[in-house]
C-alpha cells in the first residue's frame, strides 16, 4: 500500500466522521423544531384529566371530543376569530410587503438628496422596541376613538423596516438597473415598471416576507388585545388567552390545545401556497450571470 492510498483512506474516514456529526446535529435540531408540533398534536388528542396527569408521547382518543368542545364553547367563536385574524394578517402582510418593496425600490433605483439619510433613518427604526412605539400609538387610538378598528392593526404594518431592509438587500443582489432602464426606454412609466417588471422579479423575496409578516400578524396578541374590545372583533390569540384564563370549572386544557392546533392550520396553508415561489428562482436568465 503506498502513501497516497493511505492518505486518501484517511481523508475518506475523516469526511465520513464529519458527515455523521453534521447529520446528528441536523437530526437533533429537526427533532427540537418538530417536537413542539408533535406534542401539540398529541395533547390535542388528550382529555383535560389526562393532561393534568402529566407528559406522554402516546396519542389518546379525545381528539373529536376536544374539537366539539372547542367549537361549541360559548365564550369564543372560532370561525369568526379565525376570519378576523386572517383578514388582519393577510392585509397586513400584503401592505407591509408591497409598501416595503416600493420603499426599497425607491432607495435602490433612484438617486436623490438625502437618500443615505433616508436609508439609515428607516434602519434606525428597527432598534426601537415595538412596545415603546405602541404605547403612544394606543393612546392616539383611544383619543381619536379609533379602537375596534381593523385599519389600526393593518396600517402600521406598512412601515416595516425589517421587510424594507430584506427587500433592499434582495434588490441589490438580483435587480440590475439595466432592466429598469430597458423598461424606461420601452415607454413604461415608473409605477408601471415597479408593478409589472420589478415585482414579478422579486417573487421569492415577496413570498418569504409575506409568510413572515403573515405569521407575525397572525400571532400578534399585544396590539389587538389593547385595541379590540368587542367580542365579535377579537382575533385568535385573544381567544386562546381567553380560553386559558377561564375559571377552574370551565378550564379545559384539551380544548386549548385543540384551538391552538386549529389556529396554526391557516399558517401552514399559507406556507404551502407560497413555498413554491421561494424555491423558484424566477430571476435566472434575465441578465448575463
Amino acid at each position: 500500500m503506498n502513501t497516497n492510498t493511505v492518505n486518501s483512506k484517511k481523508a475518506i474516514a475523516q469526511l465520513t466522521i464529519v458527515r455523521i456529526i453534521v447529520y446528528i446535529i441536523l437530526a437533533i435540531l429537526t427533532i427540537l423544531c418538530l417536537f413542539s408540533f408533535y406534542m401539540l398534536i398529541i395533547n390535542s388528542t388528550r382529555s383535560n384529566g389526562e393532561l393534568q396527569g402529566g407528559f406522554t408521547l402516546i396519542p389518546s382518543t379525545h381528539f373529536i371530543q376536544n374539537l366539539v368542545n372547542a367549537w361549541n364553547d360559548s365564550s369564543i367563536n372560532i370561525p369568526r376569530g379565525m376570519l378576523n385574524s386572517f383578514l388582519i394578517a393577510a392585509l397586513s402582510a400584503i401592505c407591509a410587503t408591497y409598501f416595503s418593496a416600493l420603499t426599497a425600490y425607491g432607495i435602490h433605483a433612484y438617486n436623490f438628496r438625502g437618500k443615505k439619510f433616508a436609508y439609515w433613518f428607516i434602519l434606525a427604526i428597527m432598534v426601537i422596541p415595538s412596545q415603546v412605539a405602541a404605547s403612544g400609538f394606543v393612546q392616539i387610538c383611544y383619543k381619536f376613538g379609533l379602537t375596534n378598528n381593523y385599519l389600526m392593526l393593518i396600517l402600521p404594518g406598512i412601515a416595516s423596516p425589517v421587510v424594507f431592509f430584506y427587500m433592499k438587500q434582495y434588490m441589490e443582489a438580483v435587480l440590475p438597473m439595466e432592466i429598469v432602464e430597458a423598461a424606461r426606454v420601452d415607454g413604461s412609466n415608473e409605477f408601471f415598471t415597479f408593478n409589472r417588471v420589478i415585482l414579478p422579479m422579486l417573487k421569492p423575496a415577496l413570498a418569504v416576507q409575506l409568510i413572515f409578516t403573515f405569521v407575525a400578524s397572525w400571532n400578534n396578541y399585544f396590539l389587538p388585545s389593547l385595541l379590540l374590545t368587542k367580542s365579535e372583533l377579537k382575533t385568535v390569540p385573544i381567544m386562546i388567552a381567553q380560553l386559558r384564563s377561564a375559571d377552574y370549572s370551565k378550564f379545559d386544557m384539551g380544548k386549548v390545545y385543540m384551538f391552538i392546533l386549529l389556529a396554526i392550520l391557516p399558517v401552514v396553508i399559507v406556507y404551502l401556497i407560497l413555498n413554491r415561489n421561494i424555491i423558484k428562482g424566477v430571476t435566472s436568465g434575465s441578465v448575463k450571470g
Binding site: 440590475p176 439595466e178 432592466i179 432602464e181 430597458a182 423598461a183 424606461r184 426606454v185 420601452d186 415607454g187 413604461s188 412609466n189 417588471v197 414579478p200 422579479m201 417573487k203 424566477v282 430571476t283 435566472s284 436568465g285 434575465s286 441578465v287 448575463k288
Partner: peptide, 18 residues
C-alpha cells in the same frame, strides 16, 4: 427616454425574466 423614439440594446441583455 420613452419620448425620444429611440431603442436601446444593453450589454447584459436586460430582458424581463418573467
Amino acid at each position: 427616454p420613452k419620448d425620444r423614439d429611440i431603442a436601446m440594446v444593453f450589454q447584459n441583455y436586460a430582458l424581463y425574466p418573467h
